[in-house]
Design a protein around this nucleic acid. Structure first.
Lengths: 139, 139
DNA sequence: CACTAGTTTGATAACGGTTCTCATTCTAGA
DNA sequence: TCTAGAATGAGAACCGTTATCAAACTAGTG
């Protein structure tokens, strides 16, 4: 809703490059799974990085807005984050271990656009996420 | 997760028919829009019905499990409820006024099933909701 | 109709995730 | 090296939701 999105350096979330942001980015880069902010906070702390919870939330939020990470909401209200590719896509997420696979649904986008148009809706966004048990966790 | 889902009278959420549940059901039946539990609570109170907030939440939850209402989560974490038809379907919801249209996407279901199968996922559920501004609110 | 067992209710406390506050620390450019 | 202002972090505040538990009520039964 904000028109304040200022231009910023490629790949950078905020203007300044801090130890905390570096740690966060590195940690995210290492995993293919979705993690919660709290989990990330614990992990960083456990790994010896001194970071505040507020910073984790703030940075994650900024990165999400900047398109550096994807965020999905679980059924119980937690938001999970994960590094992501630049293209628009959806996810197939494992309910048990958090592993995620990026998938895209060309048909889904079209269907959404059509449904919106047919009903006179504008500025339509869509939420399309699949949750299940990955091959490993199914066993 | 519970195997306790006992058989119950058609169209009824719990066993007992209370004033509160009746009021809630009637209120929902009157509208095509999604409303939050809190909103519903306020509306009922404003309408003279004495109901507790906890009861609204409990009943809404029960009705959701029973398939009497649909629930969607907004981006800011609120859960919205609405009476619904029996068939599986998705929604095109107005961000501004809550009005919703039930839509179904035969292709979406198939796409979801295929993506899941292709990646070895099992027990896959999908979340597919469209949010936008309805014709009226677009003006 | 009266009685009773067991369900439901509701005021309020507790909860869990997230955001806000604001004094302090740190970054980046001059 | 200095400095303006961005970033941080501990803890409080927030907010939607759920749990608690004694009191009220429903629906069968005698």
């Amino acid at each position: 809703m904000s028109t304040e999105t200022a231009p910023r350096a490629f790949g950078e979330v905020g203007r300044r490059d801090t130890r905390q942001r570096r740690a966060l980015r590195e940690h995210l880069a290492m995993s293919d799974s979705f993690v919660s902010a709290q989990q990330l906070y614990d992990d960083l702390r456990a790994g010896g990085d001194k970071v505040g919870l507020a910073t984790v939330y703030r940075t994650l939020q900024a990165m999400t807005e900047a398109g550096e990470v994807d965020a999905v909401r679980t059924d119980d209200g937690e938001t999970l984050y994960r590094k992501c590719g630049p293209r628009h896509h959806h996810h197939l997420v494992c309910r048990s271990c958090g592993v995620a696979i990026e998938i895209d649904g060309p048909g889904v986008e079209r269907w959404a656009a059509k449904a919106a148009a047919d009903n006179g809706f504008t500025e339509v966004t869509h939420v399309v996420e699949l949750f299940g048990l990955c091959a490993d966790c199914s066993a």
